[in-house]
């Protein structure tokens, strides 16, 4: 691989992803606080949290758990690199699933009832957003004829104009991915403590720091995919992604948590329904 400009940009983007994610989480906490009429923590609060966690006394549940926590971050980064280097979108989705499995195995391996139930719910979360995201990606490639992000970006018409419903569906996916209410059954940082910390319960110190950064990377990756909806102009694309980001925070603050059954029903009906209608419309319009 020759070290040309675009490769350097890709590497820089990949390296910047965790930091972007951290800042975004800071923005999230700040915005949430403002919506609740509070001041909120500093913008770089997430970095303080992670650094603090990293330096804490290492408490682990067993010898597999730390490795799995690291693999969660690792595969999240690998999935992110598919976006950064503009490679295969479908493979990115499968890699994200792999990262999730690592997280769940880490949670399960502790044999703690709380993290175990959190992990089970994490599976249900995967079950509710994965097929929908897969469908959105397939819709994108049906329009553009390729799964490779470089090819999708080269498509001339902005995807938002052709797939507006898929964009709306991405809002749902993003809420699930960010573990926000109403879809935060598996574990959250908020006052819902019936499962203590859900899937995160048994992480502590540096394992928690790894998982936290992994989560940031996943959110940024998802936002980058939203950005594809207006690929010809990256600024509009970024704006679209940020709009969904703010939308997710708004939804988080407005809606109470749903049970997993209703989460599944909601994501599947909205997700499948909207994308199918959109595809049929495009088909009748002769676009695909």
């Amino acid at each position: 691989m020759a070290l040309n400009t675009s490769t350097i940009i890709s590497i820089v983007f990949l390296a910047a992803m965790p930091f972007l994610g951290g800042i975004l989480m800071g923005v999230d906490r700040r915005l949430t606080a403002r919506m609740q009429n509070r001041m909120g923590p500093p913008l770089i609060q997430p970095f303080y949290d992670v650094l603090k966690l990293w330096a804490k006394e290492p408490y682990i549940a067993n010898n597999i758990q730390p490795l799995m926590a690291f693999m969660y971050l690792g595969f999240a980064m690998l999935a992110a690199s598919f976006v950064a280097f503009q490679l295969d979108l479908l493979l990115m989705l499968f890699t994200t699933a792999l990262a999730d499995i690592c997280l769940i195995v880490a949670a399960f391996s502790a044999k703690s009832p709380y993290s175990y139930i959190g992990g089970r719910r994490e599976f249900l979360v995967m079950l509710s957003y994965e097929p929908v995201l897969l469908l959105v990606e397939i819709a994108i490639s049906l329009v553009t004829g390729t799964f490779i992000i470089k090819g999708i970006r080269a498509y001339e018409t902005p995807l938002l104009l052709l797939l507006p419903a898929a964009y709306v569906v991405m809002q749902v996916v993003l809420v699930v991915e960010m573990k926000k209410s109403p879809f935060d059954v598996s574990g959250s940082a908020h006052a819902h403590q019936e499962l203590v910390r859900g899937v995160y319960t048994e992480f502590s110190g540096y394992t928690m720091a790894l998982v936290e950064v992994g989560h940031w990377v996943k959110v940024v990756t998802m936002l980058a995919i939203v950005g594809l909806f207006w690929a010809p102009n990256p600024f509009i694309g970024t704006a679209l992604a940020l709009a969904l980001f703010v939308g997710a925070i708004l939804i988080d603050n407005v809606y109470p948590r749903l049970s997993w059954q209703r989460m599944l029903k909601t994501t599947w009906t909205i997700g499948f329904g909207l994308v199918i209608v959109n595809l049929l419309a495009l088909s009748f319009g002769g676009v695909i």
Binding site: E57, P58, Y59, I60, A61, N62, N63, P66, A110, K111, S112, P113, Y114, S115, V196, T201, E202, S204, G205
Partner: peptide, 8 residues
């Protein structure tokens, strides 16, 4: 790391 029992 120190192996600590699960939170119960």
């Amino acid at each position: 790391g120190v192996i600590v029992p699960a939170y119960l």
